[in-house]
């Protein structure tokens, strides 16, 4: 999460905040199944991001963008 302002500062156009520097595509506090669901949510959010027109660094929050888990 604390890398987000840096990414925006250097001009990364599409940014998906995650939960920790050592595990950008995971969350070791979750059990394996829930962690995999979280990773899926991150990728779904990333696909929404690359499908969205942006003009400046834009944050896509995985808790708001991706569909709710079934």
């Amino acid at each position: 999460m604390n890398l987000v302002p840096i990414a925006a500062r250097v001009g990364a156009p599409r940014i998906v905040p995650t939960r920790g520097i050592p595990f950008p595509a995971g969350d070791p506090s979750l059990d394996p199944e829930a962690e995999r669901a979280w990773r899926r949510r991150l990728l779904e959010t990333a696909l929404v991001a690359v499908s969205t027109e942006v003009h400046k660094p834009t944050i896509f929050d995985p808790m708001l963008v991706a569909p709710a888990p079934a």
Binding site: P22, F23, A25, G26, P28, R36, R39, L42, L43
Partner: peptide, 23 residues
Amino acid sequence: GFSTVVANADPNRLLPLDVAREM
């Protein structure tokens, strides 16, 4: 620049291949 223990335990936490293959 960071402790790699958690990433090395499951490298999908760095490169999300498992879910990308699923998609």
